[in-house]
């Protein structure tokens, strides 16, 4: 009597647990030709890779999987032979990386650009000026500037802009806020502190769309040649990492710089706006 129901209940619980274990995952199979890419959050967050990946698979039969991380971590994953190919945007670091023998066959793919955004009343008066003028103006005014502070590509770009403008990195200044967070979180913090920040245009378009086209922060500095954000594709060095799929990686790099992929990149739209400019040589 009671013993029987006890057994039945225990049995049901065990079966339910076992069933959970066996639950099939929704996985996409592509005949075993799988390429692993480490890339930056910007290419993933904008949807560019979701747009390119199925077309790449259609053209080559290679399944593309990617892990979207900060540029620093993406480079580290390649250095540790954990991925096959890299799509990143930190040219200075990339050059050192290739020189150190971690990456090979680095090729330009496309660029987007950075913009400096800030509150509409613009306390440092930087609207329409060049980067070399704007950053010292912010420093002089002691206006709040919010930095990613996370060693990402955007952060590295910002640091190079400060040195390019002939200024020290304002690491310990009270008006210089380092968030250690992603781009969108950083923009939101800048908005709340009514400060300036450097962002890639794609994230800003999304941010703007989130606010129905009327965001609290506006583009104040843009178009300066030093604001260009160059993306490059690079193979993980197969001599250092015998396990990587260098043939598949090369196929992906070749495809990215091919006229077809370059056209696809040019046609990619976010909120109706072009985000990336292809510039493969």
């Amino acid at each position: 009597m009671d013993l029987l129901t006890e057994r039945i209940r225990t049995g049901v619980a065990i079966i339910a647990f076992a069933a959970m274990l066996c639950l099939p995952g929704a996985t996409v199979q592509a005949g075993g030709k799988v390429l692993l890419l480490a890339t930056t959050t910007s290419t993933d967050n904008t949807g560019l890779l979701d747009y390119l990946a199925p077309r790449f698979t259609g053209d080559t039969g290679i399944e593309l999987r990617w892990t979207a991380v900060g540029t620093g971590k993406a480079l580290k994953l390649g250095q540790n032979c954990d991925v096959d190919v890299l799509l990143v945007h930190a040219p200075a670091a990339e050059k050192k990386y290739v020189a150190a023998g971690y990456g090979v066959d680095r090729r330009r793919v496309m660029y987007n650009d950075f913009v400096i955004i800030g509150p509409g009343r613009d306390p440092a008066g930087i609207k329409g000026r060049s980067v070399a003028e704007a950053l010292p103006a912010i420093r002089r005014a002691g206006a709040v500037f919010v930095s990613r502070g996370d060693n990402s590509g955007t952060h590295k770009k910002e640091l190079s802009l400060w040195s390019g403008a002939g200024a020290d990195i304002p690491d310990k200044e009270p008006w210089y806020i380092q968030t250690g967070q992603g781009m969108l979180a950083t923009i939101n913090i800048a908005a709340e502190r009514r400060g300036y920040t450097l962002t890639d245009r794609g994230t800003y378009i999304k941010y703007s769309a989130n606010h129905g086209g009327n965001p609290p922060l506006q583009i104040l500095v843009e178009g300066d040649s030093c604001l260009r954000n160059q993306y490059s594709v690079m193979l993980v060095n197969p001599e250092r990492c015998p396990g990587v799929k260098s043939a598949l990686a090369r196929a992906f790099a070749d495809w990215l710089v091919s006229p077809r992929a370059q056209k696809l990149i040019a046609d990619f739209r976010l909120m109706g706006k072009q985000l990336f400019v292809p510039n493969a040589r």
Binding site: F17, L23, G25, A26, T27
Partner: peptide, 15 residues
């Protein structure tokens, strides 16, 4: 897909 991954991985680790 994400739910299945979560359930699978947590079931494995819990087992």
């Amino acid at each position: 897909s994400a739910v299945a991954a979560t359930v699978k991985v947590s079931s494995m680790s819990m087992a």
